[in-house]
Structure formats: C-alpha cells, structure tokens
Nucleic acid binder design. Structure first.
Length: 153
DNA sequence: TATTCTTTTGGCG
DNA sequence: CGCCAAAAGAATA
C-alpha cells in the first residue's frame, strides 16, 4: 500500500492531497504546513493539474480515480452531490427528497465528505442559512465555501 | 447498544 | 418577525 500526500497552494489556501493505491482518497482544505515531498507521482500531478484547471474555470469537470472511504449511504450522497450542476445550489431537504432520506442524514454525510471541492459539498446549503461546510457553520471553512460558490457564479 | 451530529419544522411572544 | 425546542435519520465508539 503506497500512501502519498502532497500539499499545494491554491486561492483558498493550502490543499493537502492524499493518494493510496493510485486512488485519490482524501482532500484536506486549509491544511497545515506540511512537506510536499512525494509530488513526483504521476497521479499527484494529475490531481494538481485538474485542481488548477478548476480554479481557473469552475466548469471544469473532474475526472479522477477516487476511492473515498465511507459507508454505502455516504457514497450515495457523495455521488448525488457530483450531479449538482455547476453554479447551482441545493438544500439538504431537496437532496433528502431525491435520495428518499432525511435532511439530517445528508448533513451528516456532507460533514464527513473526505474529498471537498471535487465532491461539491459546498453546493449544498441550508434552507435558512449558508449551511455548513466540513462540519463547520462558520469560520474559515465557510469563507472557502463562499469563495467556491462565487467562483462558480 | 448508546451517544452525538446534522437540519428542518412548528409554535409562541 | 425573531427565537426556542423537539424531531428524525445515520455514523461512530
């Protein structure tokens, strides 16, 4: 098992990319200072390239091998998230109705989304507020969320 | 198995 | 119009 991680700098801060067995398994936003050593991996460079394209053009469609570790329900939610059109936002309630579940479960799954940005959990908002992002309802995470939404609009 | 986390909804002042 | 409390589903230890 080869575990590779790299940190890059983006308009929204540092992004930590983690790859295992030639699959993207984790993306961490606002990462701490960590050494970017294993960036010679081919897939890592591909991920970096696609991320940079996204930051240039939000309509870019990610095409990466992902293997997010989660339950079947979570993966179903994450898959549904990727079907949200660019620039559009959906509420937890809408997604819940679409997946035939409850909004709270959706929020739970979104909070545990291991791959932000690529899995557009930032396009999911609450009905009355800006919603949460990565389990937080305020702070730097929300700033990133807002940036991403404006970027797509 | 129990606890915790997440949003939505309804009622009251 | 604004605030508070309760509910329902799922993940985690």
């Amino acid at each position: 098992m080869s575990l590779i991680s790299t940190t890059i700098t983006s308009p929204i801060g540092k992004i930590k990319i983690t790859i295992s067995n030639s699959k993207l398994i984790k993306i961490q936003l606002a990462a701490q200072n960590s050494p970017s050593q294993n960036d010679q991996n081919k897939l890592i460079q591909n991920v970096i390239s696609q991320l940079q394209k996204y930051f240039t053009d939000a309509n870019f469609f990610f095409n990466l091998p992902m293997q997010p570790k989660g339950t079947a329900f979570q993966q179903k939610v994450w898959r549904a998230l990727q079907n949200i059109p660019c620039g559009e936002t959906k509420t937890y309630g809408k997604l819940a109705k679409q997946l035939n579940t409850s909004p709270r479960a959706i929020g739970n799954a979104c909070s545990k989304n291991p791959i932000p940005i690529i899995i557009p959990c930032h396009r999911v908002v609450s009905q009355n507020s800006d919603g949460g992002f990565m389990g937080k309802t305020a702070g730097k995470s929300l700033k990133i969320k807002k940036w991403l939404l404006e970027h797509e609009q």
